[in-house]
Write a protein that binds this DNA or RNA. Structure first.
Lengths: 350, 350
DNA sequence: TTGTAAGCGTTATCAG
DNA sequence: CTGATAACGCTTACAA
C-alpha cells in the first residue's frame, strides 16, 4: 500500500538465459542443481548471473514450486528475554535445513493471533510454530489442515499436521516450592502470573501441591497477583509486605516477576536470601547475573526452540514426530537459604 | 454427521469467481477495493469467500503487483534485550502503514549479513532496515540501488534510497564519565567492548575525552577488554581487581557488561556504589531492576526503532527523510555516588 | 543434456 | 461496472 511505481528494474531469469544463449529452463536447472548441465553452458550462465548481478525472484519461485522454504513463528511478544532465547533456538535449528523463520508477534491479542496465522497461511509458509498461543484447539486443528503447526507449551491431540509440546509447569513449580520447604520454610508466599495464562495457573497448582504434600495449609493471603513482568512483581511484593503477611520465602511465577520483587526487598532493607529467600521461574539469561544470582526453575528455552523447529521440519516431511520436550530443572543459586529461625540447626557457612 | 466442510487445500480466486458467477477480475476488485462493484455481485463473492474460507495467495499477489508490503529487518542477534526493544519499535511503527517486518539475524557474521540482505532483495521486500551491520558503505550503496535501505547506528552519506542514523556514542560515554568525575572520582576504570565494534570504540573515545577535559591522565591500565556480554564483564572485572589497579568507579561499555562486573564486585564483597560506582550503557529494560538500579546512558531504543521504520517508509515513498535521531541521555540511578575518600581504593591490593 | 510450453494465483490493461 | 486477456518470474513435465 505504499509503493506507487512499477517493479524496479530487476533482471530476470529470462534475460540471463538470453545473455548466456541458453533456454530459461537451463538457467533454472543450474540455479537449483536439479540436473547436470554441460560445464560449457554452465560457465556462460554463471558469468551472466555475475555480470548482471542476477538474484532469482523468490516469490516467483515459490509460486511455481509451491514451496516457500519459510516457517512462520508466532510469539506473544518479541520484547522479552525469554522469547529472544527461544527464537534463537528456532533460528539456528532452521538454518541447516535451509528454512527461514519469519517472526511475528500477536502482542497478547487473540484476535491478532488469529490474523497472524491466517497471514502465514496466505503467505504459504511451509509450516507454523506457535509459542503458547490462546487459539482454541479446534481452530488450531482447522488451520493445521492447511499448514503443519507445532505449538510449544501446550498439550494437543497429535495429528499428522499438528503437534503440541507441553511443558511441565506443575512439576517445575512443585520442585521450586519443595526446595524451599526442604530448607525449612513454612511461610512461603507466591506471586502469581496473569490469571488467564495457562502457564501461570499451572505454576500455582505446583505450588499448592508441594505445600499440601508437606502438610502446610494453603493460605490465599500469601498469594498475590503478578503479570509476568517486573512492574507486577514490584506491586505484588509491596502489597505482600504492606499487608503484614508473614513469610520467609517468595516463589515468583517467573524471573521477571522475581526481579521486581527483589527490588522491593532491596528498598525495604530486606536481605536476600538471609531475610527472605527468592525463587523465580524460566532461568532467563540475566538471572545468572542478578545480585545474588537467582535460584530458579530452568526451562531449556533454547533447546525447546530447537525441538520445535525440528518438529515442524518433521511434520513437513511427514515423518513421525516424537514429542518429548526436555524437562524443567531446578537451578539452585544464591537467593535461597534456610529461614533465620532455623539457622541454629542449619549451621551453614553461607 | 459427516462434516460438509472439507476445507479444500487451496482455494483460488478463480474458483471463487466461478462459484459466485463472476469473473476473476471482479473478485480481485472486491478484494482490493480497487473500484466499485455492484453490491449484488459483491454479496455473492463475499459469501463464496466465506464459504470456501478463501485466503488470497500473497505470493501470487506480490508477483503480479510488484509489491510485497514487507520490510526486511536485519539485526546481529535476536537474543538480546537490547534488540528486542528495538524490534518492538519497528513492529509498532510498521503496523499502521500496513507493512509487515521480517526479522532476520546475521549472528555477528559479516558473510551471513551479506547473504541475508541478498535474500531480502530476492524476496523483493519493499525496504530494508539494518541495525549497525558491518557491511561496508560501498556495498550498502550498491544494495540500496535495488531496495531502499536505512541503517541505524551509522553515519552514511545520504542518498535517495539510503539513509544512516548515527548514534552519538561519544557524547553518551562522555556524559557518563563526566558524571563520575563530577562526583569526585579520579580513578575511573573502563571495560570496553569488542575492539572491532564501532560503538565500542566510540564509547572509549568519549571516556577519554571526559578524562582529558578534566585533566585526568588516561591510563591504559584501567581499561580492560570486554565483549558486550556478561561473561566479558566478569572476566574484565576480575582482571581489573586481581591486577591491583586502583579505582573507585567503573564505566562499562554496555549494560550487559555492567551486569557481569557487578557480579564480581558482589563476590568480592565490594559494595555498589559505596565502594565502587558503576555505570552502564544502553539502559536495557532490566537495568531498572538490578540491585541497586543501574546508572546508565539511555539509548531511546524503542524510539530509534520507530524512527528507522518511519524513515524506511519515507524512503519508499520517495519523501525527504529527516535523519535526526533522538539523543542519548544519562540516567542517574543508584549505582553511583561520591567516592568514600581518597584512601578508599576499592581494589587497592589484595 | 537441453529446449518448449504449460502452468502457479493475482493484478492490471483494455475494451465493452 | 465488468470481463477477457495479457503479464509477473520461475519451475517442471514432456519432448527432442
Amino acid at each position: 500500500m505504499i509503493s506507487d511505481d512499477p517493479t524496479p528494474p530487476n533482471v530476470t531469469l529470462e534475460e540471463i538465459a538470453r545473455a548466456a544463449g541458453v533456454s530459461p529452463s537451463t538457467v533454472s536447472r543450474i540455479l537449483n542443481g536439479t540436473v547436470r548441465v554441460s560445464s560449457e553452458k554452465r560457465q556462460a550462465v554463471e558469468q551472466a548471473i555475475a555480470q548482471f548481478r542476477y538474484r532469482p525472484n523468490v516469490l516467483a519461485r515459490s509460486l511455481a514450486s509451491g514451496r516457500t522454504d519459510t516457517i512462520g513463528v508466532l510469539t506473544q511478544t518479541v520484547a522479552s528475554p525469554f522469547y529472544a532465547e527461544w527464537l534463537r533456538g528456532i533460528e539456528e535449528a532452521l538454518y541447516e535445513p535451509g528454512l527461514t523463520p519469519v517472526f511475528v508477534s500477536s502482542r497478547w491479542n487473540v484476535e491478532e493471533e488469529r490474523t497472524r496465522v491466517e497471514q502465514f497461511i496466505a503467505r504459504r509458509v511451509d509450516g507454523i510454530i506457535i509459542l503458547h498461543g490462546q487459539l482454541d484447539e479446534s481452530r488450531l486443528e482447522e488451520f493445521s489442515r492447511q499448514t503443519p503447526i507445532v505449538v510449544l507449551g501446550r498439550s494437543l491431540e497429535a495429528g499428522p499436521t499438528l503437534a503440541g509440546f507441553p511443558i511441565d509447569n506443575v512439576q517445575g513449580a512443585f520442585d521450586a516450592t519443595h526446595h524451599l520447604i526442604a530448607q525449612g520454610h513454612r511461610k512461603i508466599a507466591f506471586i502469581a502470573g496473569p490469571p488467564n495464562h495457562t502457564d501461570a495457573l499451572e505454576r500455582l497448582v505446583g505450588y499448592r501441591m508441594a505445600l499440601e504434600e508437606a502438610g502446610i495449609p494453603f493460605d490465599a493471603i500469601r498469594v498475590e497477583q503478578g503479570d509476568f513482568v517486573e512492574t507486577g512483581g514490584v506491586a505484588a511484593m509491596e502489597r505482600l509486605i504492606d499487608r503484614g503477611v508473614g513469610f520467609t520465602a517468595v516463589f515468583c511465577a517467573n524471573d521477571q516477576t522475581a526481579y521486581g520483587a527483589r527490588l522491593v526487598l532491596y528498598r525495604r532493607g530486606l536481605r536476600v536470601p538471609e531475610d527472605v529467600s527468592l525463587v523465580g521461574f524460566d532461568d532467563v539469561p540475566t538471572s545468572l547475573y542478578t545480585t545474588p544470582p537467582l535460584t530458579t526453575v530452568r526451562q531449556p528455552i533454547y533447546e525447546l526452540g530447537r525441538q520445535a523447529a525440528e518438529a515442524i521440519v518433521g511434520l513437513i516431511r511427514k515423518e513421525p514426530v516424537t514429542s518429548s520436550p526436555a524437562p524443567l530443572s531446578l537451578i539452585v543459586r544464591e537467593t535461597t537459604c534456610a529461614p533465620r529461625s532455623a539457622e541454629s540447626r542449619a549451621a551453614s557457612s553461607g
